[in-house]
Computed example of a mutant assay.
Amino acid sequence: MERIEHRACFGGWQDVYRHRSAVLGCDMSFAIYLPPQAQDGPVPVLYWLSGLTCSEQNFITKAGAQRYAAEHGIAIVCPDTSPRGDGVADADGYDLGKGAGFYVNATQAPWAAHYRMFDYVADELPALVEAQFPVSDARAISGHSMGGHGALVLALSKPGRYRSVSAFAPIVAPSLVPWGQKAFAAYLGDDRAAWAQYDASALITAAVEKLPVLIDQGEADEFLEVELQPWRLKDAADAAGHPVYLRMQPGYDHSYYFIASFIGEHIAHHAAALKA
């Protein structure tokens, strides 16, 4: 593992590392913010999953989260959004291939060789982080758009793995919207049962652990009606008795201006659960 960025930030350190992923079969980069409290011992960790076209850089440079992580004594880990490298399959367009891994384990050629982001985020990356850095196994997860989809699916699929979950403008029913249908058909094939295991609105109906879900959604989001449709998750959750707190925010769009406006509240939400 090689450290490729190292910057002081709010009394802690914002670093970026590169490592060889056995799960993905390529070199991967991830960012980690270690708050000042990490100098005195292990701290809990929030995993942040970014959206389409993003890398590990977007959240750490645009969200302003380090200030709040330092206040609460929480580390933040930001993986890339897909496998990378010359030998990794790609496609034309921003919503499939590199930068668009959708946090699934692909089963179809040519994607299956590298696109196993679910296992990478769920298992390989936390094992590496917890072995190499002063963080505990108290984990939370959050994300934006495609990453919000990933955060919800991981939390719903891995009971006991995370203490809290939240999302900004998540793709809550990928099986029913164009972004998800395109990605799932390519990565998973035509079997809709395989799609359901990565669809939060399907998973929440039978979730073993009823972990409260906090979602912020901008009412002026240009993708709200076609791609996001958060009411699908809320309706499914209400029917299943699963607590989902959907906050519709007037005037806000899909951008990092939206995320930066509410990230402090999300980190406080996670801090309460991580330190309970």
Rank of each mutant, 00 (worst) to 15 (best):
P110T: 08
P44N: 05
A75Y: 01
A38T: 00
N105A: 11
F133W: 05
A65M: 06
D15G: 01
A91I: 05
A109Q: 11
S136G: 08
T81K: 08
P79I: 06
I4L: 00
Q108N: 10
S21F: 02
L34Y: 04
Q108S: 11
A31V: 04
G93W: 03
Y47R: 07
E5Q: 15
S21E: 00
A91E: 02
R18T: 05
R7H: 11
Y120M: 01
A138Y: 03
D123P: 12
R67G: 13
G101N: 06
D86V: 14
F59L: 00
H72G: 11
Q57V: 13
V129L: 11
A65N: 02
W111G: 04
D95A: 08
G73E: 01
A138S: 10
Q132L: 09
Y17R: 12
P35T: 05
D92P: 11
S55E: 06
D95T: 09
A127Q: 10
G64I: 07
M28I: 12
E56Q: 12
D137N: 14
A112G: 05
H6M: 01
G93P: 11
T61G: 11
L125R: 08
R84N: 13
L49G: 03
D27H: 15
V135G: 14
H6S: 10
P44C: 01
V121S: 06
Q66M: 15
G51F: 12
T81R: 05
G25I: 08
V23P: 08
W13T: 11
F133I: 03
R3F: 02
I32N: 05
W111V: 00
A100D: 09
V121T: 08
D137E: 14
A100M: 05
V77L: 01
G101E: 00
V43E: 06
F10N: 08
F59Q: 00
G87K: 13
G12I: 00
K62R: 12
A127E: 13
F59I: 00
H6T: 07
Y120K: 00
H6R: 04
K62Y: 12
Q39G: 01
S21A: 12
L125V: 08
V104T: 10
G25A: 05
I4E: 15
A91Q: 07
A138Q: 10
D119N: 15
Q37W: 02
N58K: 05
D86Y: 12
G25E: 06
G87Y: 07
P35F: 03
G64T: 10
E124K: 15
V43N: 06
A109S: 03
A69I: 00
Q66A: 15
D27S: 14
G25N: 09
G73M: 10
L24W: 03
A122I: 14
N105M: 09
F118S: 07
D27M: 14
I141P: 10
I32G: 06
E130F: 07
A69G: 01
Q39L: 14
L128Q: 09
S142H: 03
Y103A: 06
P126Y: 10
D119V: 12
G41K: 06
A31Y: 02
C9T: 11
A22R: 13
